[in-house]
Amino acid sequence: MNPRRKKRLGIVVAVLLGISLTVGLMLYALSQNMDLFYTPTELVNGKPDGTKPEVGQRLRIGGMVVDGSVKRDPNSLRVSFLLEDRGPKVTVVYDGILPDLFREGQGIVAQGVLKNATTVEAFEVLAKHDEEYMPPEVAEAMQKNHQPMDYSQQQLQGSEQ
């Protein structure tokens, strides 16, 4: 191989290595910033494909705030509350000012870090916009987790009407 071809080959190899290193670093950075969405049931039991979040993982969780579960620290802005969909409840701890529309019995989405199997330390809490609005992820997850009534429950509801 003549020196001119060697030089071209070296340049091509260097460019390919540079591009592959850049793409690899970009994919790594994107995977670090990805926040997966979970419902309280999926957080505790895992998603249908068997994946469960690990402690320390960033995530988004959505559900309904349980009535009577909001506890505020009188000396700081720290708030904790329970979140549920149709199964287990998950504790969300937030240190900051909650949105004006936040209240018990409504749908919210919290973004934060998983501290243990049933506790999320949130750094952002988003509340719904009006009485009819529910975040799409929450509505879809609640439809998936909806348990059909058995025959005895249908008869009981029919006799009440």
Rank of each mutant, 00 (worst) to 15 (best):
M64Y: 10
R103G: 09
G87A: 14
T118E: 14
R78A: 14
A110Y: 07
L82T: 00
A110G: 10
G105S: 03
S76T: 14
G68L: 01
A110M: 12
V65T: 05
P88N: 14
G112F: 12
G87E: 15
G105D: 08
L59W: 02
L98K: 03
R103A: 12
V113C: 11
P53K: 03
G87Y: 14
I97H: 06
F81Q: 00
P88T: 13
K115S: 13
R103C: 08
E54P: 04
G56Q: 05
N116Q: 10
G63S: 07
R60G: 02
E84Y: 09
E54D: 12
V92N: 03
I61D: 02
V79P: 00
R103V: 07
R86M: 14
K89H: 11
R72I: 13
K52H: 04
I97Y: 02
P74K: 08
R60I: 02
R60P: 00
I61Q: 03
L83H: 08
T118S: 15
V93P: 04
T119N: 01
K89D: 05
M64Q: 06
D95S: 14
A117K: 13
L83A: 12
L59S: 02
V66S: 03
S69C: 00
T118M: 11
G105M: 04
L59F: 01
G68W: 01
E104C: 00
L77N: 04
K52M: 10
E84H: 09
F102R: 03
V70H: 06
G62Y: 06
F81K: 05
V120I: 15
N75S: 15
L101A: 11
T119P: 04
V66T: 06
V70S: 11
R58P: 04
V90S: 12
R72G: 02
P53M: 11
K52L: 05
R60K: 14
V90N: 06
Q57D: 03
K115I: 10
G63C: 12
R86T: 15
V113W: 10
G107M: 02
V70M: 06
K115L: 14
L83T: 09
T118G: 10
D85M: 01
V109E: 10
L59E: 05
R72V: 15
Y94M: 13
